[in-house]
Design a protein around this nucleic acid. Sequence first.
DNA 1: TTGTATGCGTTATCAG
DNA 2: CTGATAACGCATACAA
Lengths: 353, 353
Amino acid sequence: MKVRIIDIAKKAEVSTGTVDRILHNRGKVSKKAEEKVKKALKELGYAPDILARNLAMKKELHIVCLLPNPEETKYWSRPVAGIQKAINELSVFKVRISKVFFSSQATSFEEACQKALALNPNGVVYVPMFREPSVTFANSLQKNNIPFIHLNIFQQELKPLSFVGQEAYSAGKVAASLCDLALNANDKILIAYISGEMQEYSHLQSRIEGFTDYFGDKGINESRIEHFYVKVSADKKNYEKSFLDFLSSAGNIKIIYVPNSRAYRIASILKKHNIKNILVIGFDTLEENLELVKEGYIRFLIAQQSKNQGYNAVILLFNALFKREKINNNYFLPIDILNKENIEFYDGIINSL
Amino acid sequence: MKVRIIDIAKKAEVSTGTVDRILHNRGKVSKKAEEKVKKALKELGYAPDILARNLAMKKELHIVCLLPNPEETKYWSRPVAGIQKAINELSVFKVRISKVFFSSQATSFEEACQKALALNPNGVVYVPMFREPSVTFANSLQKNNIPFIHLNIFQQELKPLSFVGQEAYSAGKVAASLCDLALNANDKILIAYISGEMQEYSHLQSRIEGFTDYFGDKGINESRIEHFYVKVSADKKNYEKSFLDFLSSAGNIKIIYVPNSRAYRIASILKKHNIKNILVIGFDTLEENLELVKEGYIRFLIAQQSKNQGYNAVILLFNALFKREKINNNYFLPIDILNKENIEFYDGIINSL
DNA sequence: TTGTATGCGTTATCAG
DNA sequence: CTGATAACGCATACAA
């Protein structure tokens, strides 16, 4: 029935110890023994019982997760929650999963990388938020033979084991396709850039490109697209008036596209001034955004199962490490469309298992 | 650190055997021993190591899944795939998971129920497709103390351990909210009933109610909603002409709502006749539907993570049975909105873990 | 270089 | 009623 180590040991006419040495290539095996065992392995089709393995293991695996501090950037609280879920679920196994947070400066990221390396991890999940330091980090990991998975930001050049996140360009197109439904002949579109601190988000750019490309393909070009910039940290809350001024002077704005998670900043202004004829579309399920979707001031949110993002990355790495599963590159998460009607169902069973 | 059976045995001054008897209430324990053990259990906070348990278990759990034959009704192939995924994932545990299919007659369903009971399952997942036979089945299960989970069709009166599926009424509302975006002043809506065999789908009715209620709330009532009925089995393919006739006589139809998984039947007629100005919205990710979404003849699909539906139900029951987890009632799955732009990402990581 | 023995935390059997 | 003990499949320390 089930092929055990002892079965292949018998078949190969060696002891279980020898088989084990080959399985874990600990060396100290004769060529002859090795051949016999490998033959038996193939013929009988051995697959380890990972549960028994876990029971017997002395030392534990260590997975380190490196991501922005959720107290600074709200978006990250959900991926962190997903990681926590994975921690709970994997608690029966001999794995330790640590979280290391960094803040919005590149130096903080670099420090976190050092900290992570010092922990001597068997595997790493990280968000390659800053380009240069990420390259350095990836190189260190590779040198030490530590597999790693990228979260949220796509950086294929660094050759991660896998990427878990959303395809940002397409997400922008999805947003555009929804706006398209509501757009009439002379309506204009406003893209609002509400930036926070971190500036190296390449996916922000992609979300905008996807959006404008969609309309470009339909012959709707720059003449009907306005742009409004806010740097939150500098302008504090003082952008409200300038935004309203911009809005009235631009005229005919039917749609406002906010390519990051800060749609709530725009929508709350509209709410305050009771402006209801503009369709706001944004990203991510921050509490603030959810609330305004329910109230009707944000019409659509594009979501990326941010909780599962963290969860999946950890589970994936665990499987690779513990079960020695091969994993494919690049797990693009679904591009979810949320509105007032379906939003309450978004955290269904997936997130509670 | 970790509390084991032997730890509580020592604390309670009994043997591990006695503790085991209490843990599994196999009886044959004195009151005194029981009290001492229960006290120790509480104080030390024992939680079983399910991996060690699995290793030691002699007999295996048996979960039986009862659902419509996917070869008859295409929708079911994805839940079945999800069940298969759960089977693979759980293969390391001592669980057997069997599938029993039934066809579109109530008698077939009843037979399947008999078959399922004869398998002496420890737990059952089933689709309560027919009302009366489902009541009988649920009663038998309850009498034999076999926990069960309902799939896809909501029948709370039968007191399943849980329900896994979509809230159909809200799904109808979601569909309506999308149509709403595209609906102009004098446009009309057509609801197309393309029925197959099985007639006891209460959720079909709910999907329609949700849809019409949404528009009712906005003051769009029956005067702007047309209805078209096809009984596929009777009319074979001959409804094409009658449908086209209906369409042109009704006039001004901007939206066609197909509240089941057969939107492709309508959309393929539109495709054949090159009709592009009508927005078709339907349900479920059948291959045929996906294709027509990509080609633009179906504008939206409402999906319910049908693969996860099967997967989650099995995992949930396994957790309840094996880990003795308490589970909450009613896991409503997300109401997913798919269109040409996001559909290729729909089968992301969730389905490949 | 190889084989043997012990333990991981449970379950379940078998004497008492 | 109770306690002791042999599996379960694997990892690992140790002996040869």
